[in-house]
Design a protein around this nucleic acid. Structure first.
Lengths: 262, 262
DNA sequence: AGGCATTACGCTGGACGTAAAAATT
DNA sequence: AATTTTTACGTCCAGCGTAATGCCT
């Protein structure tokens, strides 16, 4: 029966050219390598070397065998990797969400219900969530609309946040149409909110600032409007004396649905 | 490092369901198998089994690992087979000839020049010889026409053999056109002669008899014409008092060329 | 009670290293 | 003289089997 360790030494010999160097490489004695190569010939049932009195080299069959040896070793490594990856995947709950708020909410619950499990989460577009659910490359998907087998999870409503001196501050409520054209501060990684706003407000420009602290600083220092939701409002979000104006469009009042696989 | 023998036991466990049965299958003790499976988990770096106090079964990762194990074992076997095949091929001179006579002649020489080498020979069509040479799946090809790098090997001329009382027996020489329509006795495995005759004599029927003794018996007992060549004539071929008439077409006077690779 | 997995433990064969031989550079 | 392969030989440990334990059916 073939031995992978011997095959490894064999491949090393093809690279290094002498048994001594292989012995050095593997921290073994030369006789040990000699025996390994003899065993290998035994296992293949075929001569792999042409031997002089104090020199050994691959014959034609040996050269061909090196190729198969390398392939086998590579596939053995691959197999180990794949099994490990599979195992990790088993211990991991992969979540893909269209928005941050319901993801955070879900993560809290998961930490409670599945303690010790690894959790891998991503915020992405609706379509990606659906694809991922379809190909079972995630365990849980969060979408802003119901799908087969999903349950209602939470609601979130979008607001415009402006300083009191802003011209929009007088309004009691707004529509996307009314704010279309104004430039907004935006934190990226907002999933579907982001794309939805860009669709509903094609005339607006969005200044993206990923870093949270920098974003907060901009909110404080500038008079640019930004978005906020009641979910975030209830939390630690500082408003720097800004005014919160609800958006009346139905698209701004979202219900999130959670779909769990098996 | 993965051990193929342990993987084999692992695959067997997937089939048999208990370590005891695996132990029986491999003529080993149960503790030995237990240790092998523990080593395997160590090698993969991952738990492969769910264990009760006196029962063990594959977990999800284990089930996945079985697939990779089987694949690896199969590829290891394949590798051994391929290397052996390659080795055999190295020790073998593969000859493909379009006709028997030059093949026999060449084999005599090869037994002389390459004693101890295995020789694998086939009689086939011209096209097959050329394809085989092209893809280097043979070492020597014999063709009835010259090709790049080939050398002239021998000549062979085709004759018609008929009993003295046959109507053709009066002729001193013949053409394919004149014998077209007569039915002929034929030994198959004649390579290009066979197809050439069928092309030149589309109106004739050919009674094929592979077995040499049966063929000779037919030649003796019937008055059907058959083919013969000067090469065979010079040898042991009995003619049973038949008359040999040369065919004058250029296609009946063949020069064979030998092409040797590397 | 019989079957199964695992641990404990003693033994042995195989694998390794050292030493030495023989040959090549 | 240095390097390389291979054989000989002694040592030691990994891997095996036996026995025993605990558990389940």
């Amino acid at each position: 029966m073939l031995d992978l360790y011997e095959l490894k030494q064999f491949a090393a010999f093809a690279d290094l050219g002498t048994l001594s160097k292989v012995a050095g490489e593997f921290h073994l004695s030369t006789p040990s390598i000699t025996r390994s190569m003899q065993n290998l010939e035994e296992s293949f049932g075929v001569k792999l070397f042409s031997r002089g009195k104090n020199r050994i080299e691959l014959n034609e069959t040996g050269k061909a065998a090196v190729g198969y040896a390398r392939k086998l070793l590579q596939e053995a490594d691959r197999a180990v990797e794949q099994v490990r990856a599979f195992d990790l995947r088993q211990k991991t709950i992969v979540v893909r969400s269209c928005a941050p708020a319901p993801l955070w909410e879900l993560l809290k619950k998961l930490n409670h219900t599945d303690p010790g499990k690894m959790i891998s989460s991503t915020i992405c577009q609706n379509e990606e969530v659906q694809v991922s659910l379809g190909e079972k490359s995630c365990d849980i998907g969060i979408l802003p609309f119901p799908v087969e087998g999903a349950y209602e999870f939470m609601k979130e409503n979008l607001f415009v946040s402006v300083p009191p001196e802003h011209e929009l501050a007088r309004q009691k409520e707004l529509t996307f149409e009314e704010i279309n054209g104004f430039n907004f501060l935006l934190r990226t990684e907002l999933g579907f909110w982001d794309t939805m706003c860009r669709e509903k407000m094609p005339a607006s420009k969005f200044l993206v600032q990923t870093d949270t602290e920098a974003f907060n600083e901009l909110v404080r220092a500038s008079s640019l409007p930004c978005f906020i939701t009641d979910y975030i409002q209830e939390k630690e979000m500082e408003d720097y004396g800004r005014i919160r104006i609800p958006i009346t469009d139905p698209e701004a009042k979202v219900t999130f649905y959670v779909k769990e696989l098996s």
